[in-house]
């Protein structure tokens, strides 16, 4: 292992996370290859969201290192604002900016962070709205949209930055059942286009169908890692078996 980052887009090594006295991540080594769709499943409290949030340093590892494109992003000297423009994240609770229209939500970072001019930002935003199937919602405020539409706007907002990696943190968990599919479809489209994705989810169908690799976490550790079909059909670890028997 010469270059610590390797060819992987994200690489984690010996990562631990404590919240106070609570040891949430207990030594994780993981790399995410370009073009892969990594699905992280596991019981609640197993640390999967924390793991995901450490990939863009929303949570700082207490111990261990994280590389993005070979660059150590746990190094204090790394410009995280710059790194984050290459990593999109979508949250369970959408986190759209309620005081801005859909258009405003998408263009604000394009203009203020990437310094695009207003026209170019608007064009990109329109293209992403189209991409997410919501071209007519540009001037609506988040409160005027359904949960599924809001989440697709949130995906469009992240995509407009042209990220190299997309992180999804239980993005369908806050949605009414009938709205889940439209968001999953959008994510599947994204995967088909070759986007590198890390997806924390409870949607087993999506994991099996779209994931190129599945990780099962329990108690702050990765207990199983492999192709989704293999894990679903033939789980090796007892905890995985137990979990899958409950959710399938």
């Amino acid at each position: 292992m010469s270059a610590p980052g390797g060819d992987a887009l994200i690489r984690m090594e010996g990562v631990h996370k404590w919240f106070g006295a609570n040891h949430v991540i207990k030594g994780v080594d993981l790399s995410v290859e370009k073009g892969s769709v990594v699905v992280i499943i596991g019981p609640s409290g197993s640390g999967k969201s924390t793991l995901l949030r450490m990939m863009n340093m929303l949570e700082e590892p207490t111990e261990g290192k994280v590389w993005f494109e070979g660059k150590d992003i746990t190094d204090i000297r790394t410009d995280l604002n710059r790194v984050r423009t290459d990593i999109g994240i979508v949250f369970q609770s959408f986190n759209l900016f309620p005081h801005m229209t859909a258009m405003g939500n998408i263009t604000i970072a394009l203009r203020k962070v990437l310094k695009l001019d207003a026209k170019e930002a608007a064009e990109r935003a329109r293209a992403e709205l189209e991409h997410m199937g919501l071209p007519e919602k540009a001037d609506e405020y988040p409160s005027q949209l359904s949960g599924g539409q809001q989440q697709r706007i949130a995906i469009a907002r992240a995509l407009a930055m042209r990220p190299k990696l997309m992180l999804f943190d239980e993005v369908t968990s806050a949605l009414d059942p009938e709205l889940v599919q439209e968001v999953l479809d959008a994510m599947k489209r994204l995967a088909d286009e070759g986007m590198t994705m890390v997806v924390v989810t409870h949607e087993m169908g999506f994991a099996r169908e779209v994931g190129t690799r599945m990780i099962f976490t329990d108690g702050g550790r990765i207990v199983e890692d492999g192709p989704p079909r293999e894990i679903f059909d033939n789980p090796k670890d007892d905890r995985t078996k137990d979990f899958l028997s409950h959710v399938l």
Partner: peptide
């Protein structure tokens, strides 16, 4: 979440 969303988009 508002701050997290903003920071994740690369805002200072």
């Amino acid at each position: 979440g508002q701050r997290e969303a903003a920071r994740s988009l690369g805002m200072s």
